Simulated assay, not measured.
Amino acid sequence: MTVRKFAVTDIQLERTPGQQADVFVGNAVDQRHGGPVTIGYGRYAPDQSIDEQIVVDDVMVVLEGWVSVTSGAGTVTAGPGEIVYMPKGSTVTIRSHAQGALTAYVTHPHWQEAHPATKQR
């Protein structure tokens, strides 16, 4: 794989697998590209909430807006330029605030290979 640059406009966003909320994700790099991690973007409409069992180590960088992530350890709220780490095995609720949010993520290993909702496809 060569050095590449991405913008959210380069990525086709799709509804988060297994969710009904207005939360959309799109991978820029994943298993199809031969690298060890998945890199992509997430877009959260205002006041959305999703419950997830984290099946890979997941790093979320907030680019715009605000998100709160609640787990058994409590709630963290992150805004532009802040990073949330969700370790494999965590059960979380991710909630966007009134302005919605744009995030970037990196997962290891590839989340599509590990996520139960994508295995049904």
Rank of each mutant, 00 (worst) to 15 (best):
A101P: 02
V61I: 14
D57H: 14
I54G: 07
P80E: 01
T77P: 01
H108C: 04
T107E: 07
A21P: 08
G35L: 06
T38D: 13
V106K: 04
A78N: 06
A117T: 02
G65K: 07
S71D: 10
Y85P: 08
D30Y: 09
A21D: 01
A73F: 07
G65H: 05
E82P: 01
G100S: 05
S49C: 10
V69K: 03
M60G: 08
G81Y: 10
M1H: 12
E82N: 10
V67A: 01
A114H: 12
R95Y: 05
P109W: 09
D22S: 12
V67T: 03
A45D: 00
Y85T: 10
V56I: 10
Q112F: 08
G34W: 06
V55R: 13
Y85M: 10
L63M: 10
Y41R: 07
Y105N: 08
T118S: 11
Q31S: 09
G79S: 08
Y44I: 00
Q20A: 10
P116C: 04
T103R: 03
T93S: 15
E52W: 15
K88Q: 15
M86A: 08
V62N: 03
Q31V: 00
L102T: 02
V76C: 08
V37E: 12
A45T: 00
A101G: 06
V37W: 13
T9M: 05
G65T: 02
F24C: 01
S96F: 11
E52F: 15
I94N: 00
G40A: 11
I11V: 15
G79E: 01
A45L: 06
A21G: 10
A21L: 09
P116G: 07
S96G: 06
V69Q: 04
G89S: 10
T38Q: 15
E52K: 15
P87A: 11
V56C: 12
H108I: 02
K88T: 12
D30K: 01
V92A: 13
V62H: 05
A104C: 12
D30G: 13
D57A: 12
W111V: 00
T38R: 13
K5I: 04
I50A: 04
A104F: 09
T38W: 06
S90W: 14
L63H: 06
V3D: 13
